[in-house]
Amino acid sequence: MSPITDLLLFPPPPSPFITAMSIINLTFLAYTGFSEVRGKHLPYSKFRNANPNGHRKGIELSSRAGMLLAYSPALAAALASFAIPGCALSSTRSLLLSAALSIHFFKRVFEVLFIHQYSGQTMLDSVILISLSYFMSAVSTIYAQYLTENTAEPAFDLKYAGVLLFVIGIIGNFYHHYLLSQLRGKGDKSYKIPKEAFLAW
């Protein structure tokens, strides 16, 4: 690493698992992004019927059930890290990481159950793919932190600046998801675009 990155970042842990997961995630994201650009959308939620090649066959779920299935395993992994000896409670950095992942995925599950307004179906195979991606990302992140436990801290400690940015981001994200949910009336299944007066609210 360069002298500048040495001041701010941990070196990546020497782990075949973390290296493999990084390559798999990067490949999956690149493939998915390229497919989206080409018009081959991952069929979930409102994009379930976005492909012009006709209706997809497979098991359908309600969008609410699908999104709950997508986020719950990652939330379970983040919460489980608090019960694993030497994991979340072994250092301040590990505690902050597990707490941030738990809060992030709890917020998503909470929004699925109480905030978002759903109007359609989603495909089970797409939900499983998304769920697996979130779950493996959470597990890999927690494991990578575990592997860096005995690594010297970077010269500039950015933990608390990161906590501040995380809190601002998660509150802002929740607030705007709430505002967007208010655009739809009860039973309304159409998608709405916020107007200037609404944004000023």
Rank of each mutant, 00 (worst) to 15 (best):
T19R: 06
H55M: 06
D125N: 08
L129H: 00
P43S: 10
T148L: 15
L68Y: 11
A77W: 00
S45V: 01
M136L: 14
Q117C: 10
S62M: 12
G39N: 13
I18C: 14
G66S: 15
R93T: 13
H116Q: 06
P85T: 15
T141R: 00
A77L: 04
A100F: 11
A88K: 01
Q145M: 14
G66T: 06
I103S: 06
S98H: 03
S98C: 14
L101M: 11
Y143Q: 09
A83Q: 05
A78M: 07
S102K: 00
G86Y: 06
F110N: 03
I18Y: 09
L89W: 04
Y146H: 15
N49T: 04
F110R: 02
F106H: 05
Q117K: 11
S91W: 15
E60D: 14
M67G: 00
I24L: 06
S63H: 02
A70H: 03
A83S: 12
S126M: 11
A76Q: 04
S90I: 05
S90V: 07
S98P: 07
A30L: 14
L61P: 02
I128T: 06
T92Q: 12
P43N: 01
S91D: 15
M21L: 14
T122I: 04
N25R: 09
Y118P: 01
I24Y: 08
S35L: 14
V127A: 02
H55S: 10
C87L: 13
H104R: 14
S119W: 05
T32A: 13
G54R: 09
I142P: 00
I24E: 12
S131R: 07
A65C: 13
A20M: 12
M67C: 10
S102H: 02
S35F: 07
E60M: 15
I84Y: 04
T32M: 15
G86R: 13
L147K: 04
F34M: 10
V127C: 04
K107I: 09
A99L: 15
M21D: 12
R38W: 13
L147S: 03
A30P: 11
H55Y: 08
F114R: 07
R48A: 06
S140Y: 08
L61I: 12
I84R: 01
G33F: 09
F82W: 07
H55P: 03
